[in-house]
Design a binder for these strands. Structure first.
Lengths: 344, 344
DNA sequence: TTGTATGCGTTATCAG
DNA sequence: CTGATAACGCATACAA
C-alpha cells in the first residue's frame, strides 16, 4: 500500500514493466487488449506514476511556472485563471509561485529551472528591474507579462506582453484635461522606479506639456518603502500626504485602481466629495472599479487577451521559435462617476 | 553546459560524488577544507541538485501544498503570504495550486500526493463537500482551513481551522437587531449548501427567532449556478432579485464582504441610500470593507492567527501527532458606516 | 575522512 | 507486439 509502483502493476497484470509504460504513455505499438487490461488495473488500484522518476528519466518536465509578484493584485487573478487552463489544456503541468516584492524573480526562476527542469516561465507583475545579463542566464523560454519593457535593455533578449503605459497614461491625462482639469495631482510608485511608475508618469507629463499645462512638483506624490505600492493602503497614505501639502488641485490620477480607492477614502475622510470637489482616476480596470462607490474612471487593461497571448508566445518559444516579441495591447477608458467635468 | 551534475562537481574537485553529496547536505563527517572547496565550486558553477533525482532517491519530498479554492478571495492572500513564509522557514518547499469551483479538491490532492510524495496539504477555502470516505483516502496529513466542519462527518478524521460560522453569523444578526432592524434580508450561497452558506443562515435564523422575529421567506435570497458565489457580481445580482420582489426590508446581511459590495452597488443604482434607506452588513473583514464607501460593517476573521495555526497543526500531524484538532477562532464585529440605527 | 557501488521508479533501447 | 535491461542524478551503506 505504501509504495505502489509500475512493477506492481506489471506483476499483477502478468506483463513486463515496459508494456505498462507503453500503456501509460499511449505508445502505438501495444496490443489494445493488453492496454485496456493494464489501464483498468491502474484505475482499480488508483496508481499514479511517480513524477520524480519520470522527469528524472526524461530529463524534462512538461511544466510551466508562473512567478507572480503581487498576488493581491486582482488583475492577476483572471490572468492566472486563463493561463492555468491554457497550460493544462496543452497537457503541461502548472506551478504557481509567489515572489516577494523584495525578491529577485530571476533568481527564483533560475532555481526552479535548475531544480525542476521546467519548460517555460511567465513573469507576472512586478516591475522591470532585470539586467540584460541576468535575463540571459535564464535557460528556458520566458515571457514577461504585464511588465513594461525597459528601453535600457536590448528588446531581443526577452518577450513581453503589456500595454503601452506611456500611451495609456497619456490617454487618461487627455481625458482629465478634456474635463477641464488643469491642476492634476498624480500618485506614483517610487521615485527611482524605472518601470510602470515612471512610464505612467511620463505619459502624464508629456500630455500636460502638450496642452501647455505646468506639472506642479507639489502635486507629484512618490511612494516610499517596500511592499505593495499599488495598494489601497498606499493610495490612502499618499493622498493624506498630498492633502497635507495644502496645494490646490481638482483631480487626482492614481496609477492603480486600488490606489484610487485608498485615495477616495482619504478624500472622504477629509470631508471632500468625489467627484464634486475632486475627481479621481485609476488605472487597470478592475471589477471593483465598477462596484466602488462612486464607480471609478479607469483605464481597462485587456487582461483576457493578454493572458492568452502570454501563453501563446511562451509556447511558440518552447516549440522552437527564437524571435522574441513584444506585444503591446491597447487599453481603453472606462468612464466612472469618480470624475466630472469642471468649469474651464 | 546543458546538464551539469554532481559528477561534474566531483570530477572538477577531484573528489567522489558522495563527498560532494555530503557537502551539499551538511553531513558531519567531512573535512571542512574539502567542504569549503566543494561549496565554492558549486557556487562558482551555479550548480543546483536535480530535485527529481533527490526526491526519487529519498522517496520523500519536503513539500507542503496549498490547494486554494477561490483565488480571488482577498481573505486568502494574507493567509497564503503567512503560510508560505511559515512553510519556507521550516525548510519545506511550497506549492500553490488553484482548484476550480467545480473540481473535487480531494482528487486533486490525491494526485499530488501520489505523484509528488508531498508531506502535507492545506485545503484553503471552498465548502465542505467531502465525504468521510474520500478524506480517508488522503494518505498525508492535511488541514482544512477556513472551511467549516460538517456535522455529518466524524470529526476525528480531519483537522480544521475555522471560525464558528453559526456563532459569528448570530453575532452580526444580533448587531443588526440591536440597531432595531426587524426586516432583514439575507444573501446566501446555494440552497443546497451544507457548509458556510447554510451555517451562516442558521446563525441568522436562530437569532431572529430568539428575538421573536419572523424570517420572511421572500427576504432569503439563494444563489444559483456555479462559480464564485461570494463575489461582488453575485451580490449585485442577488440584490437586484431581492429588489424585484418588492418586499420591504431595512437591512441586508450579505454573507461575504464582496457580496455586500455588489449589494450596495445594486441599491445605489436603484436609487437607495446606504445606510439611510438600507443598512448593509458583510462578512470576512477584508481591507476593502474599510476602504469602501461607505465603509462596511462586517465580521472580521482573524486571518493571521488562523494561517499560523493552520501550519502549526499541519506540522504537528507531520511530526507524528495522530489527534485531529478542530480549532475554532473568534471573529469580531467591525462597525462601518454601511449600517445605522433606525427607529425601533 | 573518503570513494565505490547500488538502487530509487520510470522510460527508451534493443533483442526477441 | 513484448520483455529484459540500462540509464537518468542523487543519497547512502559499506568498504577502504
Amino acid at each position: 500500500m505504501e509504495k505502489y509502483t509500475i512493477k506492481d502493476i506489471a506483476k499483477e497484470c502478468g506483463v513486463g514493466v515496459s508494456t505498462v509504460s507503453r500503456a501509460i504513455n499511449n505508445h502505438p505499438d501495444i496490443n489494445p487488449h493488453t492496454k485496456k487490461l493494464i489501464l483498468e488495473k491502474i484505475e482499480e488500484k488508483n496508481y499514479r506514476p511517480n513524477s520524480s522518476a519520470r522527469t528524472l528519466k526524461k530529463m524534462e518536465n512538461n511544466t510551466i511556472a508562473v512567478l507572480i509578484k503581487g498576488i493581491s493584485n486582482p488583475l492577476f487573478h483572471y490572468m492566472i485563471d486563463i493561463i492555468q487552463s491554457e497550460v493544462l489544456s496543452k497537457d503541461y503541468a502548472f506551478i504557481l509561485k509567489k515572489v516577494g516584492f523584495d525578491e529577485d524573480e530571476t533568481i527564483v526562476a533560475d532555481e526552479i529551472i535548475r531544480e525542476q527542469k521546467i519548460k517555460g516561465i511567465v513573469f507576472l507583475g512586478g516591475i522591470f528591474t532585470h539586467t540584460e545579463e541576468r535575463l540571459k542566464t535564464l535557460t528556458v523560454p520566458f515571457v514577461l507579462s504585464t511588465i513594461s519593457p525597459s528601453k535600457a535593455i536590448d528588446g531581443r533578449v526577452y518577450s513581453a506582453i503589456s500595454i503601452d503605459d506611456v500611451r495609456e497614461s497619456a490617454r487618461m491625462t487627455e481625458y482629465l484635461i478634456k474635463l477641464n482639469h488643469k491642476k492634476i495631482a498624480i500618485l506614483l510608485a517610487k521615485k527611482e522606479d524605472v518601470s510602470v511608475g515612471y512610464l505612467r508618469y511620463q505619459g502624464f507629463e508629456e500630455t500636460m506639456k502638450k496642452h501647455g499645462l505646468k506639472v506642479d512638483e507639489d502635486l507629484i506624490i512618490y511612494s516610499e518603502g517596500d511592499g505593495d505600492l499599488f495598494s489601497m493602503e498606499n493610495g490612502y497614505n499618499l493622498t493624506k500626504q498630498l492633502l497635507s501639502r495644502g496645494k490646490e488641485f481638482t483631480a487626482i490620477f492614481a496609477i492603480s485602481d486600488r490606489m484610487a480607492i485608498g485615495s477616495i477614502k482619504a478624500l472622504i475622510e477629509a470631508g471632500k466629495k468625489v467627484p464634486e470637489d475632486v475627481s479621481v482616476a485609476g488605472f487597470d480596470g478592475l471589477d471593483i472599479s465598477y462596484y466602488y462607490n462612486p464607480s471609478i474612471t479607469t483605464i481597462r487593461q485587456p487582461v483576457e487577451e493578454m493572458a492568452k497571448e502570454t501563453i501563446k508566445q511562451l509556447f511558440m518559444l518552447i516549440k522552437g521559435s527564437d524571435t522574441n516579441k513584444h506585444m503591446i495591447f491597447e487599453g481603453s477608458i472606462v468612464e466612472g462617476n469618480s470624475t466630472r467635468k469642471i468649469r474651464g
